[in-house]
């Protein structure tokens, strides 16, 4: 393992090399930076700026008027911001746990069965991810529909569970399941490929030692896929913070008083989805701004916690 510049360039030319490297880096990073600047940074800046205006359908998007922090005050004047914040954390934590644990479980199990069968199960688990969200959500809303309909009712009735309208009586269960079954495939994909990339010799050695499958998993597989697991944890946390689509398509934040409304759904409802078309762009932007700050804060904490510094370490080469 050695640093690039030590191999690539003699030390005496380091000063000029430094510039050359920066120029080359710019060449390679230019397109990505331009896209990021225009479609990530600029919108975030605009969102923050917009959150101090009163833009709404009733003003149009062109007549920017400063109203100071009024949108933020209005947000915290609502009786429900705490509920929504709490929902957000519950949603992220529970769905994340489901995604990672189930994803890991499916990955481990599917590599422990015959290759063909494993592949089949993985394909099945990828189905929710590759289905259009409206169709996938429709399947769940019909599965959870009110009696005498709803497949769930048909399944649980023999076990003495009273038929009910699941989306309304157990909204969190549905929210977690619908998101969990989509999200688990992400972890499964990453974990499976990571497991498959583990050199065979390691397993052979264990085989010779007569280790059990569980032992192999605990001693060899899991430690070796530590980074993918952390990557999935961090990446999925961020995804979940920003996601709302399946909640929107099933419980739509209800029933009643924001029972399953998350922060991003709140922002979406406010800025983009009002039954009577009264969209509050600036107010929604203030919510989005808070969401950006929350997402950033939590990612930074997680990156620190998991020592992601190592992942962004200086370039090096595996030999």
């Amino acid at each position: 393992m050695a640093r690039i510049e030590e191999i690539a360039l003699p030390r005496e030319r380091q000063a000029t090399a430094w510039w050359r490297f920066n120029a080359t880096a710019l060449l390679f990073l230019g397109p990505a930076m331009a896209l990021v600047l225009v479609f990530f940074i600029a919108p975030v800046v605009i969102t923050f700026v917009m959150s101090f205006t009163d833009l709404a359908t009733s003003t149009g998007l062109s007549n920017w008027q400063w109203i100071g922090p009024e949108n933020y005050q209005r947000m915290f004047r609502s009786q429900f911001w705490l509920t929504i914040l709490g929902n957000t954390f519950v949603y992220v934590a529970v769905v994340l746990a489901f995604n990672v644990i189930v994803g890991l479980g499916i990955a481990l199990l599917s590599v422990h069965v015959e290759a063909k069968a494993g592949g089949l199960f993985r394909s099945l688990w990828l189905l929710p991810r590759i289905s259009p969200s409206v169709v996938y959500a429709l399947m769940w809303t019909w599965a959870a529909a009110s009696p005498p309909f709803g497949m769930i009712n048909y399944v649980v009735e023999p076990f003495g569970v009273e038929p009910r309208y699941w989306i309304q009586s157990d909204p969190w269960l549905i929210v977690i399941l619908i998101n969990g079954f989509v999200g688990a495939s992400f972890g499964m994909l990453i974990f499976t490929s990571a497991i498959k990339a583990i050199p065979e010799d390691l397993f052979r050695a264990a085989q010779v030692d007569g280790a059990s499958a569980l032992h192999v998993i605990r001693r060899i597989t899991l430690p070796l896929i530590k980074w993918p697991i952390l990557f999935v944890l961090v990446y999925q946390t961020m995804s979940l913070f920003a996601s709302y689509e399946y909640i929107y398509l099933t419980t739509n934040g209800g029933p009643g008083l924001y029972a399953t409304e998350t922060w991003s759904l709140w922002a979406f409802h406010t800025a983009l989805s009002n039954y009577y078309g009264n969209l509050d762009f600036a107010y929604g932007a203030a919510m989005a701004a808070i969401l950006v700050l929350m997402g950033l804060g939590i990612s930074v904490v997680m990156l620190r916690l998991f020592r992601f510094g190592q992942l962004v370490a200086e370039p090096r080469v595996e030999v």
Binding site: I46, T47, V234, Y244, L272, I298
Partner: peptide, 29 residues
């Protein structure tokens, strides 16, 4: 492969970009 100024920050930043809620930035977009 390249070593350049701000590499760590950029690389970390790229991951943080994912925490920007793209959907709620629609109006700004």
């Amino acid at each position: 492969r390249l070593r350049f100024r701000g590499r760590r920050v950029f690389l970390g930043g790229v991951l943080l970009l994912h925490s920007f809620p793209s959907v709620t930035l629609l109006i700004a977009l």
